[in-house]
Design a binder for these strands. Structure first.
Lengths: 207, 207
DNA sequence: GTCTATACCTGGATAGAC
DNA sequence: GTCTATCCAGGTATAGAC
């Protein structure tokens, strides 16, 4: 990792715990192991570090979701779900994948915390946060459920309603447990119960 | 309104838009119409203003929820729902009441925005935010659905699962539209669709 | 209780030696 | 590219007159 990358990395850690304003350039420099003045050889300002992080997140998501439509998969595995047979296990895998990706991915989890805190101070971060964690998540899952409905894998329900029913608990549990990663197992147990219920509603009952 | 109340009120407005650190004592004093030094006759520090706001929220919720169990009702109307006949309209009323209370109540809506931003900087605000908007909301609705299930108004499903299914979309839509109050109608339309679906799942189908 | 004046500090950023 | 030294702006808080 270059010094420049190290600066952005330590800055993200600090921004995600102490907030943008709560982090001084000296804090970042200390974490990297250089003097604050040296940092300006790599970034022209504190804001520039922040912008670089936002851009990096933007690039990562673009790379992932342009191909798979989901911020989790290296393959078209999820598309396969839509076209193949959907089991409760594949739904559980999907929900856990989204949940744990947001909660545990080394970059994404820190970015998410920062985004939640800074969304109202920065229009760019508001846009990217709402796009990734709300609009695109719902849009992708709406497409997924629309396709499943079309192929008669589940009941004929408004796919957007299904998507919100599927994703909202993930989002809620994420918001609830983001600050307490040691309770991950509690969160996953709750998530599994929601997914089991979701599955039983749309696959097992009269449809 | 006394000067002291006015200071706390303007501070809440500023904290909820610019954040705690983004708001200076001078900003608050300007909004009130006094000099920053005069402000220290009413509060001994900036932190003291913040603590007063958190305490005020705590008191408001204690007053409300100690009696009704819900941050919306002046009466036992909601208990009545549990004991009386639940219609799709009463569910819609309940969900809109919670949603609009959090989104529009003059004090609560500002506090919520501040809480989302400051939760990771202040253990007190983390506690009160998670308590009110997560634990207590779920606990109350779990009780509600448990009672309804007991009285056979709905299917025998884990009441906590039902509560999360009912509340998560409210929470998600709140998070999504909190920063764009002008889209309130879009949010309410989506909320109504979720509630209609929730109702049809637990009341109309085989149970 | 409000003002003016001020002390004190932290934080962002630059200059210039090495 | 890193350092020391420094500048400057802005923020918290206090002292003391009115």
């Amino acid at each position: 990792m270059t010094t420049k990358e190290k600066i952005a990395d330590e800055a993200l850690t600090l921004f995600s715990t102490k907030g943008y304003r709560g982090t001084s350039v000296k804090n970042i420099a200390d974490a990297v192991g250089i003097k604050d003045s040296s940092l300006y050889k790599h970034f022209k300002s504190k804001k520039h570090i922040f912008d670089t992080i936002v851009l990096e997140m933007h690039n990562r998501m673009a790379r992932l979701s342009f191909q798979t439509g989901l911020p989790s998969g290296p393959s078209c595995e999820n598309e396969a779900n839509a076209c193949g047979q959907l089991t409760i296990d594949s739904l559980r895998v999907l929900s856990r994948k989204i949940f744990l990706f947001y909660l545990k991915d080394n970059f994404v989890s820190r970015f998410l915390k920062m985004a939640v805190m800074e969304q109202y101070h920065s229009p760019e971060i508001y846009a990217v946060y709402h796009k990734i964690f709300m609009e695109e998540s719902i849009a992708y899952q709406t497409d997924l459920f629309r396709e499943m409905t079309r192929q008669r894998y589940c009941q004929a329900v408004d796919p957007e309603v299904m998507a919100i029913n599927f994703y909202s608990p993930i989002f809620f549990l994420l918001s609830k447990y983001m600050g307490e990663p040691e309770k991950e197992n509690t969160a996953l147990a709750l998530l599994d119960k929601q997914v089991a219920e979701f599955y039983s509603i749309y696959w097992n009952q009269n449809g």
